[in-house]
Design a protein around this nucleic acid. Sequence first.
DNA 1: CCGAATGATTTGTGATCACGTACCGAAGGA
DNA 2: TCCTTCGGTACGTGATCACAAATCATTCGG
Lengths: 244, 244
Amino acid sequence: MPTVQRHVETLDPAELSGEGRRGLRGRVTDALRAALITGRIQPGRSVTLRGLAEELGTSPMPVREAIRGLAAENALEISAKGRIAVPKMSERKFAEILRARALLEPEAAVLALPSLGRAEIRRLQAVDDQIDASLGTGDVETYMRLNHDFHFTIYTASGSAVFLQLIESVWLQFGPFMRMVYGRVGTAALVDHHKQAIEAIAARDPARLHEAIRLDIADGMALIGEALGSDAGAASEVRMPRGV
Amino acid sequence: MPTVQRHVETLDPAELSGEGRRGLRGRVTDALRAALITGRIQPGRSVTLRGLAEELGTSPMPVREAIRGLAAENALEISAKGRIAVPKMSERKFAEILRARALLEPEAAVLALPSLGRAEIRRLQAVDDQIDASLGTGDVETYMRLNHDFHFTIYTASGSAVFLQLIESVWLQFGPFMRMVYGRVGTAALVDHHKQAIEAIAARDPARLHEAIRLDIADGMALIGEALGSDAGAASEVRMPRGV
DNA sequence: CCGAATGATTTGTGATCACGTACCGAAGGA
DNA sequence: TCCTTCGGTACGTGATCACAAATCATTCGG
């Protein structure tokens, strides 16, 4: 039997056989996206078509197209010679991502506000409670999955496919890097503004929601920037753009 | 010999054999991107793998991956049954795109300001002169290509791969639609704020550049919205977001 | 003259293969 | 001991094929 786990411990076993009928490529794409956003595939790690195909128990064909799609949103990188890799993070790129997030995500949250009813608020509170619990245990992967859940529960409610795709593209770019940093500094020092966001949603206050999301992004990214400053000097560059 | 032009007059003949050695898929992707941004492929038009491959004189293989990449940035749409098509524009989606453009593009322009020297300013002026000329002739495709040139000359100078990819993704989404509208209402009534932008760049004034780009987007999109309002009632929804 | 059924055609999908190139190891020489 | 050289291996790429599903046109029944 295949499933050889060539890619070291990078787990992608048979989680593609779980769901509905959306084609092999769709399931491969989902598996890779989830692995990237939760940072299970580390930056710099080389990724091969045949390797992934073997891990997933398919032919290289669906993997090729999935990879191509992810490369199109800069979630993966294909070098000049065609080699596939998870893009490395640079100080400059990190600043750009922070800037883009600060622009897009608060706006998407405000856009979503009318659609965020009691059910969504309850869900957000439940997720946030789980986040608090996971912070204590230091389980990085669970935290990243839950944090993604929290933010995208809001953004998805906006119903804006345009914003959703833009934001998801950005998350895919910093996900692997974020995981690497958390793995180094731990999750104990993490603070978020999720509760302020939930309060703003409950109060139907767009301005406060905008500010809560903006602060959540700024603080989380600043923490990473500081932690990175020790060995990369990235903290200095990490500032919010002009008016934001 | 192939090159059968099955896709009606949608021109994609042998413009892929023009340039350097970047693989067949790269050239196919470029050809499709250019065709989409200048609106040569109309919304709703069905696109087939074998059809495009025949037009371009290749096997369906490179087309498959190119299509997959473009679909990943919402430039193409794959229906539930797998059919490929240029996405249709909706009133809501149009408003979302306008909002995203108004957020991202002025910021990218400000980001690019330090890198915009005399050479870039001269290039911008030259392109803008050509635009003025093309407006008189009513040549829609030339106008769209030049307008794209003008904006992306600025954004590219920012050196931000993150912003560039986000903005290009949005342009790919409204390109085909924009062409359709211009083809209906003509380009005579078009006004832009390119000259103000050039002046702001020359004056090294970030705030004025930000405002010029914002107005250029808002006016251009509003014109489309109004023109669309006659048969789709899209103009009412087209408003700038809160603080922008 | 119109609408439903059926058969041929076309579609995307996944698998497999051949090819040229880049990478990575060990062996040889300075 | 270090560097170069030279094979073998693994890589992405493009092409081709088989297959199932969907589409479309024709034809038959009303």
